[in-house]
Write a protein that binds this DNA or RNA. Structure first.
Lengths: 383, 383
DNA sequence: ACAGAATCGGGAACCGGTTCCATGTCAGTA
DNA sequence: TACTGACATGGAACCGGTTCCCGATTCTGT
C-alpha cells in the first residue's frame, strides 16, 4: 500500500503512519475554554495550564512550584501541588525534553540477550538506571554494519537518548566522534576502547590466572577450549582469553601447537568439544581451561558421560562465575556482570552531570573460586 | 546532597537535575541568522528551518516533502531532500511526538531477564519492534506493588509509550482501565487476562500432555516437580501446570496425595530436588514431570550423579523446549517464546493502527518432542 | 473556453512544559 | 529614609516539527 519509490534514500526517516486525529486541533478551537474537556467520552489529559488555572497562578509559577526550581512561596507551592494532585496531573516528558534537551533516557546496545553474561549485565544496568530515574531503551545490535548504521543514525540521533551504554560491542572511532560531538556520554562494557569510558575485567589476566592455577597444580598437558576467533564479539574477548592462556603456558614452557580449539560459547559447544577431545584416553589433556563457564560445564557433562572422573583424571577450570558453576563444583574465575552494569551507569550519570569528565577505564577485580573440578594431575604409577 | 524533604509526595515527578545550558537561548537571540551556527566549536544540530531555508521553501513544505504527506511537487521534494542530506538533517522525534502524540515507542514490562524463557521472548519482541520502526523501552517489573505503581504512573504515563507489552505479568483491572482510557494498546504474553489481548500457550494442556505421555508409556508412580505456587509469576503458570498434571493423573486414576513437590524454577532447583527425591530406590517414582525444562535437566543431572540410568529406570519429561534439552535427550513439550514475542508485537501494531480492534487471546500451538529421556517403566521381574 | 477539481506552497497556530526578563514586595542595612 | 538584594510572580518567547487554512496554479471534463 505504502510503497516508497526509494526505500534507500538517505533521508527516509519518516515513513511512519499517523492516525489521522481529526479531533485535536478542531476540538481546541471550537471549544475554547471548557475546563473539563472530553474527547470521545474519555477525559483528556490535564495539562500544566489546567493546573495553573485551578491554582490561580500562571503556567510559569506552576512549573516552578512543581519542579522546585526557582522561587516559589511555600503557600503557592502547596496550592499548586494540591491542584495538580486534584486533577491527576502528569507532566509530559516529551514537552519537557523538547525544551530542556534531555530525555532522561539511556540507550543500551547489546548483541544478545539469551546468554547469561549479557542478561546479567542488562539487569544491572536496568536496576541502576531505574533507580536514577532514567528510562532504558534497548537496541539489540547485530554485527551487521548496515543495521548498525541505521541504529546509530536513526534511533540514537533522532530519538533523544541522553547517553549510550554499549555492552560487548566495540564502537568505531567514527561513532565515538559522532556521540562526542552530540555531547552524549558513551560507556562501554566488556572491553576497553581507547578514548571512551569502559568497564570490564582483564580478560587476559583472567585466563592467565586460570591457567596458572592448573600449572601450579602440576598439569602439563593443558588444552584451551575457547571461543571462535572469527565470531567473537567486538571486544575480542575470545582472543584475549586465548592470549592469557598462552602467556601462562609459554611462561611455564608448556606451550604447544595444539593448545587451543575453537568452540561455540555455550554448554552445548563445550559438551560436543568435550566428547571429541576426551574420547582418546591416551592423547587427552589432563586439564582444560574453558573460555567461559558454559563451555566448562559442557566439558564436565561430557566427561561424566564418558566416565572420566573429575577431578581425578581431568581438571577443568572456567571463567565467569556462572550460577551453574557451583552445582557442577566448577573452579572458576568469577566476575559479576551485573556489577559491571551498575558501574557503567554510574560512569554515565557522572558524565551527564559534568560532561567535561575524562574517560575512565575501570577494571573490575577478579576472584578465583576454587571448587572440586581441579586438582593435581593423576600420575600413572606404571609410567 | 540532594535530599528531598518529602520523597513520598504524590507529585514528585520532577526531581531531575538540569545542566544549566547558559547557551541555547542566548545564542539564538544574539546571533540572529548565521546559517552555520556553532556552540563551543561543535556544529549545532541542523533543524527543519535550516533545511527549508537552504531549499528555499517554507518549513511547512519542507516537512511535507520529507514526510511524503500532503501535496508536494516532485521537483520541490527532491530539492528539499537534497538540502536535508546536504546538511545531515535528522528530525527530532521529540518535537514530532509532541504534536502527533505518538512516540513510536513501546514499553515492555518483564519480571526477569536471566531466565531463558524471558530473554527469548524479549528477543522476539525486540526484533519485531525494530523491524516495525519502534523503539523498545524496557521496564523490569518486580512484584513489589509500590515499585509497580511507580512504573505505571511515572514511566508509562509521563514518558510517552504508544503501547505496552507485559511479559509474564498479569495486569490489574485498574491498570488495564488506565491504559484503555489513554488509548494505549496492551498485550500480555504468558497467560490470559480477561479483557486484553494475550499471547500464550495452554499451560494446563502442556502439562497434561506431558503427563499423558508418561501414563501412555505405562508409568504409575509419577511425580511432578513444579514451581512454587507462592512465588510464581502473575499468570499462575506453576499452578496451571500442576493442574494439568493432576487432571491427567486423575483421569487415569493415578492421583495420589504426594504427587507434587515445589521446586525453584531452575536447573539448580531441579538438581537439588532430584537428589532428594531419587535417593531412595524403593520409594522413588518411575517418572517425573518437570514444571519446566530447567528443572527436568537438573533432575537428569541428579539421576546421573546417583547412578540411576535414564530412561531405563527413570523417565523424565519437561516443558518448554529449552535449547539444552536436546543435549540432554530430554523429552519435552516445546513452545517458542520468541514467536510469542513476535506475535504480541503484531497484535500491538494492529491495535495501533485501529484502536477499535477487539482483544484477541491467541494460543500458540504446542509440539511434543520425544527424545531419549522417556520410555516404558522398568518392571522388576522378581516382583 | 470555462467551471470545478486536484495540486502546490506559505503563514501561522499549535503541542505542553521551561525559562528569560520585567515588575513588584518586603526585609535588612547604611 | 532611601537603597540593596533576596524573594515571588506573570507575560511571553521558545524548543522543533506538524498541520490547518487559504490563496494561487495547474489540470480535468464538457
Amino acid at each position: 500500500m505504502d510503497e516508497h519509490p526509494d526505500p534507500h534514500a538517505d533521508v527516509d526517516y519518516w515513513n511512519r503512519f499517523h492516525k489521522s486525529r481529526s479531533d485535536g486541533y478542531a476540538r481546541r478551537q471550537s471549544v475554547p475554554d471548557t475546563d473539563a474537556r472530553h474527547n470521545g467520552g474519555v477525559t483528556a489529559m490535564a495539562g500544566l495550564a489546567d493546573v495553573a488555572a485551578l491554582a490561580g497562578v500562571s503556567k510559569a509559577t506552576a512549573s516552578r512550584a512543581l519542579s522546585g526550581r526557582g522561587y516559589v512561596s511555600p503557600a503557592t507551592q502547596a496550592k499548586v501541588k494540591d491542584a495538580a494532585a486534584a486533577i491527576g496531573f502528569v507532566a509530559s516528558a516529551t514537552a519537557a525534553s523538547l525544551v530542556t534537551g534531555q530525555s532522561h533516557n539511556v540507550g543500551v546496545l547489546i548483541p544478545v540477550l539469551s546468554r547469561w553474561y549479557f542478561s546479567e549485565v542488562l539487569e544491572g544496568v536496568e536496576s541502576a538506571l531505574r533507580e536514577a530515574g532514567y528510562d532504558l531503551t534497548l537496541y539489540r545490535l547485530s554485527n551487521d554494519d548496515v543495521e548498525r548504521r541505521r541504529v546509530f543514525d536513526y534511533f540514537l540521533m533522532r530519538k533523544g537518548v541522553d547517553a549510550v551504554i554499549a555492552v560487548g560491542i566495540a564502537i568505531s572511532q567514527e561513532e565515538i566522534a559522532l556521540l562526542r560531538s552530540l555531547r552524549k556520554p558513551l560507556v562501554g562494557i566488556g572491553g576497553d576502547v581507547p578514548g571512551i569510558s569502559t568497564v570490564s575485567i582483564d580478560d587476559v589476566a583472567a585466563a592467565r590466572r586460570a591457567t596458572d592455577h592448573l600449572i601450579g597444580l602440576g598439569h602439563r598437558r593443558i588444552l584451551h577450549l575457547g571461543g571462535d576467533l572469527e565470531h567473537q564479539m567486538d571486544f575480542h574477548v575470545h582472543e584475549k582469553r586465548l592470549r592469557g592462556v598462552r602467556e601462562s603456558l609459554d611462561g611455564a614452557g608448556l606451550g604447544h601447537p595444539d593448545d587451543f580449539r575453537p568452540v561455540p560459547y555455550s554448554i552445548q559447544g563445550g559438551h560436543a568439544a568435550g566428547l571429541a577431545v576426551l574420547a582418546d584416553a591416551v592423547t587427552r589433556p589432563t586439564a582444560i581451561v574453558a573460555g567461559c563457564d558454559e563451555i566448562a560445564i559442557g566439558v564436565l557433562i561430557a566427561a561424566r558421560q564418558l566416565g572420566i572422573p573429575v577431578p581425578a583424571r581431568l581438571s577443568v577450570v572456567g571463567i565467569d562465575g556462572h550460577p551453574l558453576a557451583e552445582m557442577f563444583q566448577l573452579t572458576t574465575i568469577r566476575q559479576i556482570p551485573s556489577a559491571l552494569g551498575t558501574l557503567a551507569v554510574k560512569l554515565v550519570l557522572d558524565r551527564l552531570i559534568d560532561d567535561e569528565l575524562d574517560p575512565e577505564a575501570v577494571e573490575w577485580p577478579l576472584e578465583m573460586v576454587v571448587r572440586g573440578s581441579t586438582t593435581a594431575p593423576f600420575i600413572d604409577e606404571r609410567g
